[in-house]
Amino acid sequence: MSDHFDAINDSVRAALATSHDPTFVDVPFDTRAWQELDQLGFTTLALPSELGGSDGDLRDAAVACRSAALAAIPLTEANFLAVPALASAAVSWPGGVVTAAPAPELSLEGSDGVLSGRIARVPWLRYADHLVLILTGDSTTRLAVVATTAPGLTVVPGANVAGEPRDEALLTQVRPLVVADLPRVWDSTLVAQYGAAGRATQIAAAASEALALAARHTCERIQFGRPLARFQSVQHQLAQLAADAVTLQTAADAAVIALRDRTSQTPLLVAAAKIESSVLARRVSAVAHQLHGAIGFTTEHRLGACTTRMWSWREEFGNETIWKHRIADLVAMNDEDVWALLTDLVLDIRTEARA
């Protein structure tokens, strides 16, 4: 990494050093970690300082989210959904614990501008102070900031397979704290791209952690008088795991950089990253569990927190099938010239992707 990204990574990891090991059963919210990262400015990395942010960019945010991928806080939702939308709408950071969600089925009602409807699977909603909604259902995309204590808002608890909260929000005549129009470029596709890039970043981080755990376990575990890592078949599996982890990280980096710069290659690179992360999550999980044996399936072992999160995140903001269809649409719009679509990529990620 560069010194700049090293500093972000080290600071985030230091803030999480005293947090409990991640689990996939009844995941508790890490209040202390959120407060410390919020005070350090890592919850608002890509938000301008005049709006209460840290004047960084999406690449900085991705490094922080990668370092805190397994943490029990909505850091990715804040940095990949709430912050970009708030920055585009010139709305200040609302403060406290902030989560965010797309709300394509909601729209402002009447002259009072209230919200009614249902939003499924909102990450960490039960612990949030504010919910940032991106309303893409009307001709004009709008941002709405809602206090979670607002009258008419009911939270129905839920969870994904990793135990992370995925709550249902039921809104009945809820009056937002802030409503603002977003630029025309903000549509359901761009919202999905931000979400997909965030999940690809998290999956890449979880895969890297699974690799580190597998490498350590196979070096420590003695079988037939020697470490497992000395067996050729195990070495081949570790090599495959390492290759997949690098592939995931490179794809996620490319997607984040393209999304930050809003290049013409953004749709293709984000789609490719989410496809790779969703597809490889299965193989990474299988190999890592095979290398660990039965111990990797226990609730006490950190590996389960990695793999169950990958299984959950691969489905969020579109699985591989959905994004494959999007690439097919891009090919169709490019006169079905796949070669031209690929060779026209001009994004230079060589310097940044090494960070």
Rank of each mutant, 00 (worst) to 15 (best):
A14T: 10
L16T: 09
A17V: 11
T18E: 15
T23Y: 02
V25S: 13
D26E: 13
V27Y: 03
R32P: 07
A33K: 07
W34F: 09
Q39K: 14
L45M: 12
A46E: 04
L47M: 12
G56E: 02
R59I: 14
L70D: 03
A78P: 06
A82I: 05
A85R: 00
V91F: 09
S92Q: 11
S92W: 00
W93D: 01
P94Q: 04
P94G: 04
G96A: 10
V98P: 02
A100G: 09
A103T: 12
E105V: 09
S107K: 13
S107L: 07
S111G: 10
D112K: 14
G113L: 11
R121T: 03
V122S: 01
A128C: 10
D129E: 11
H130I: 10
V132L: 12
I134V: 15
V146W: 03
V146P: 06
V146I: 11
A147K: 14
V155N: 12
P157R: 06
N160R: 05
N160V: 07
N160A: 14
A162T: 07
P165F: 01
A169H: 08
V178N: 11
V178W: 04
L182T: 10
R184P: 08
R184W: 08
D187N: 15
S188H: 11
V191T: 09
G198A: 06
Q202Y: 01
A206F: 03
H217D: 03
R221E: 15
R221M: 13
Q223G: 01
L228Y: 02
L228P: 02
Q235A: 10
H236A: 15
H236V: 15
A239F: 06
A243N: 15
A252T: 05
T266Q: 13
P267A: 12
L269M: 07
E276M: 10
S285H: 02
A288R: 04
L291P: 00
T298R: 09
L303H: 10
T307Y: 03
G318N: 10
H325S: 14
I327Y: 02
A328F: 05
L330S: 02
A332Q: 11
M333P: 00
N334G: 07
E336A: 11
L345C: 10
D348M: 04
